[in-house]
Each structure stands twice: as structure tokens, then as C-alpha cells.
């Protein structure tokens, strides 16, 4: 067999697997490398490259992939010492949860409240700043660009921690919930600014000139010509940002907001099972997934709208 890239990676993966079974396992940290998921990834790369190079029918390809994934899972089962018998008891324990489900509702409402407020404020900030930016004032634009760069760069959790812990030292003491809302609004305001900005810029310059030559004022141009068209371009990326807001509200846990994760961990202590945590993650899934589907649906529809755009 010719020595090619694919055979090398495949060979390296196989050798590592053999070594993993043959060598002793106690304590030697260097050998722990072989047990790593890195080996799995190496194997999968080899498989992928190998499967692409030779003429392999579709069913064999699917088989190879399924085997690869099964290997990854087997790795879990054999090497991690997992006790799968506990799965039902620990992860999906309905009996212990019975009667306690309603405890999750107030935190859920709180999370919804934080999300909605943050979404509204960040959208308003973004719209305001984007319109302001289109004015063309150089100093103002530098300021706004600086704001956008700063808040796109800073990690959300760092900002929230700063606002909650540091501001009280200058007398601005915000309740945890409020500090989360404020930080998220200001931070995602940077993203919405960019979104609205590209929306406004997407409207062809000729339209502005045409509208001006018809006698419409700057404000009227913005209100009747620019914004309606920009809105169509803006909706897909905007929904993306709003979904991000929703996901980032989970950060509130770090500053002690009585939200879903916190309540789930309390229940975990009281009931002795991790089920509440699993339920919470499913809740997030249930809320976000429809929004993702909605957003891609809107994306397809907006493409149809912009196809009818008059230029």
C-alpha cells in the first residue's frame, strides 16, 4: 500500500488504539495522552481522508462514519468508567421530580424577563446608533466605532462580573438582575449597531439620490425609503443576535441571579439527582430551537423580498 497522507493518519490512529489496550494504565501522565479523544479525532481524520480517496460506495461510507462515532462512544464507555446503569436514575428521574416541577417556573419567567428587556434595549441602542452613524460626522463615528469594537471584544461574563462587582465601589450598586440586563443590553447593542448599519448601507445610493431629488427631506428619506428596505436585509442577522442574547442570559448564574441554573442546582442538592439540570438544558433547547428555525425561515423569505427590491 502506498504511503500517502491518508494511510499515515489511519496508521497513527490504529497504532495509538493498540497501544492503549496494551500498555498499563496506572498513573503515568505521559501515557494518558493515548487515551485522549485526540486519538479519536486522528482516527476520524484518517477515515475521512481514506473514504474520500478510494472509490467507496455510499453505504460503506455511512458504515465507516457510524463505526467512527461508535468508537467515540465506546471510548466513553470503556475508558471513562462510566456507570450507565445510573443514567435513568440520575438524568431522567421523574419520581423525585414529581411535585417539584413548578419550582422551575419563576426562574423561567425571570430568564424570559431578562431576555426580553435585553433584546428590546439592545435593538433600540443599535437602531439609534446606526442612524446616528449614517450622519457621517467623523468624531461621532469614531466614538461609535470605538464602542462597537470594545463591546464586541469583551467577553460577556467579564463584563457582567465587572458591572456587578466593580461598580458598587463608585456607589453605583446594581441588583444582580439589573446589572445583567444593563451589561447585556450595552454589549449586544454593539452587535445590533453593526447589523442595522449594514442594513442601512445595503440600500443603494441611487435611491437616496432619487428620493432627495424628488424633494424628500433627510428624515423622510430615512423613514420611508431607507428603513423599510433596510429592515428586510436586517431581519435574519438581527434574529441571530437576539438568539445569542437569549443564550447569553445564562451568564446571569455567575452573579447569583435566581435563574434556571441556580434553581436547578438547588433542587439537585435537595433531591439528590441531576435531573433538574437536564430539564433546564432541555428547556433552553426547546426555547431556542424554534427561534433558530424561525430565523432561517425568515432568512429564506427575506431573500424573496429583496429579489423584488426596486433599484
Amino acid at each position: 500500500m502506498r504511503v500517502t497522507l491518508s494511510t499515515m493518519t489511519l496508521g497513527a490512529g490504529l497504532i495509538s488504539v493498540v497501544l492503549a489496550f496494551v500498555l498499563p494504565t496506572d498513573g503515568m501522565s505521559a501515557l494518558n495522552l493515548i487515551y485522549n479523544p485526540f486519538v479519536c479525532i486522528l482516527l476520524m481524520i484518517g477515515t475521512a481522508v481514506f473514504a474520500l480517496d478510494r472509490h467507496i460506495p455510499a453505504w460503506t461510507q455511512s458504515l465507516l462514519v457510524v463505526v467512527g462515532v461508535a468508537y467515540l462512544m465506546a471510548y466513553f464507555v470503556i475508558f471513562s468508567g462510566a456507570d450507565w446503569s445510573l443514567f435513568y436514575d440520575q438524568f431522567l428521574n421523574h419520581e423525585k421530580m414529581k411535585g417539584h416541577y413548578h419550582i422551575l417556573i419563576p426562574p423561567l419567567i425571570l430568564v424570559a424577563k431578562i431576555s426580553i428587556y435585553s433584546c428590546i434595549f439592545s435593538t433600540l441602542i443599535g437602531l439609534f446608533l446606526a442612524v446616528l452613524r449614517s450622519g457621517g460626522n467623523i468624531f461621532l463615528n469614531y466614538f461609535i466605532t470605538g464602542y462597537v469594537i470594545f463591546f464586541r471584544a469583551i467577553p460577556a461574563i467579564v463584563l457582567v462580573v465587572l458591572v456587578y462587582f466593580a461598580l458598587p465601589f463608585v456607589g453605583i450598586g446594581l441588583v444582580s438582575t439589573t446589572s445583567v440586563i444593563v451589561s447585556l443590553s450595552v454589549m449586544f447593542g454593539a452587535y445590533t449597531t453593526e447589523v442595522f448599519r449594514s442594513g442601512i448601507e445595503s440600500v443603494h445610493r441611487t435611491q437616496v439620490e432619487a428620493s432627495k431629488s424628488l424633494g424628500l427631506s433627510s428624515w423622510q428619506t430615512m423613514r420611508w425609503i431607507i428603513l423599510p428596505q433596510a429592515l428586510r436585509v436586517v431581519i435574519p442577522p438581527l434574529t441571530g443576535v437576539l438568539i445569542d442574547v437569549l443564550k447569553t442570559t445564562s451568564i446571569a448564574y455567575v452573579v447569583g441571579v435566581p435563574e434556571l441554573i441556580a434553581r436547578a442546582r438547588q433542587l439537585e442538592g435537595a433531591l439528590g439527582t441531576v435531573t433538574p439540570l437536564i430539564i433546564v438544558s432541555c428547556l433552553y433547547l426547546l426555547i431556542v430551537l424554534p427561534m433558530v428555525l424561525l430565523s432561517s425561515h425568515l432568512e429564506k423569505r427575506s431573500r424573496r423580498w429583496s429579489a423584488r427590491k426596486a433599484v
Binding site: 440520575q90 438524568f91 447569553t248 441554573i261 438544558s281 433552553y284 433547547l285
Partner: peptide
């Protein structure tokens, strides 16, 4: 795409040990 990183982290680090992983 639908799972917040924080939630996933907590499940993996605090939840999986209950399964001995």
C-alpha cells in the same frame, strides 16, 4: 447552536460525574 455554553459546561463538568464520567 441552540445550547448555551454555560449550560453545556455545567452538565459536562457537574452532571456527568453522576454517571461516573
Amino acid at each position: 447552536r441552540a445550547t448555551p455554553i454555560l449550560v453545556a459546561l455545567i452538565v459536562v463538568y457537574f452532571g456527568l460525574p453522576f454517571l461516573n464520567i
